[in-house]
Nucleic acid binder design. Structure first.
Lengths: 136, 136
DNA sequence: ATAACTGATACTATATTGGTATCATTAAGC
DNA sequence: GCTTAATGATACCAATATAGTATCAGTTAT
């Protein structure tokens, strides 16, 4: 059961690095080195984070990316949605007679409930809480 | 976030059909028709259920498969493990410095906790509870 | 004997995820 | 201004996992 894909994972780690020094710009190359993330792949991830205004970028020599959102306001649930999409696109897994007879399918209902619970759990985890736990 | 894959879903539906009449054999063809599941794919799923002793099979004319486990003892969590494997095979998602510096990685720890919670939730759902909810 | 079934197994197709490459543009600093 | 170090945009490729198909051998009721 893969809850978190690599791009989400890489995003979290990049953000943790950025949170370690909020005032300066880190280049993608630098972050890739620190976190051992493939450079080009990381670049595409950073672009998404930039578009979602969690970080800002500066081009040119001495440029890079820098955290602009507060680490305590960046929830892992947001990153999951950002990189893994908003769960399944409303499609009913259980087709066939059961569903057509009963309109709403019981299994699907249970799955939805558990998905909400998961998102709720990941919503409680922020970049800040991860940093805090790391320092124990 | 795909919690349940199609083979698990198909297995659940097949078992619900079998639970609807525990005394007789259903052929794969029949179940495929009732649940609108691709015949050959369903056959491979039924073979796995047979090997795991949830159902028993009878070859030849008039054969098929029949439920042997009690619907209230078949937990969706078991089926998830059966068809989707035992979560991730112990591999740490967060490699690089964070992990090597701190031995155990904080994100991984949180993910593991949530995974246990999910399995616990799916452990509370059985074929029987699904059937009960369906009949409301 | 035949027809209806499962067992075993190999194969193919599709989708998702992970990763790479390239060219254009920007900006610092000599 | 030229060079260099950086991102923006975008297209492409590879690897893996999931979903689905096909076939042949063996079994059993009639």
């Amino acid at each position: 059961m893969k809850l978190i894909t690599k791009n989400t994972d890489y995003a979290i780690r990049a953000l943790m690095t950025l949170a370690s020094d909020r005032d300066r710009f880190f280049s993608a190359k630098e972050i890739a080195g620190i976190q051992d993330i493939p450079y080009h792949y990381l670049r595409s991830i950073l672009q998404i984070l930039t578009k979602n205004a969690l970080i800002k970028s500066r081009e040119g020599v001495g440029g890079g990316v820098k955290l602009i959102a507060s680490p305590s306001r960046i929830h892992v649930s947001d990153l999951i949605i950002m990189f893994q999409g908003d769960a399944d696109p409303g499609e009913c897994l259980v087709k066939g007679r059961i569903c057509s007879n009963h309109q709403t399918c019981v299994l699907r209902h249970e799955i939805k409930r558990i998905e909400r619970m998961i998102q709720n759990q990941f919503g409680k985890i922020t970049i800040q809480t991860l940093l805090n736990k790391e320092k124990n």
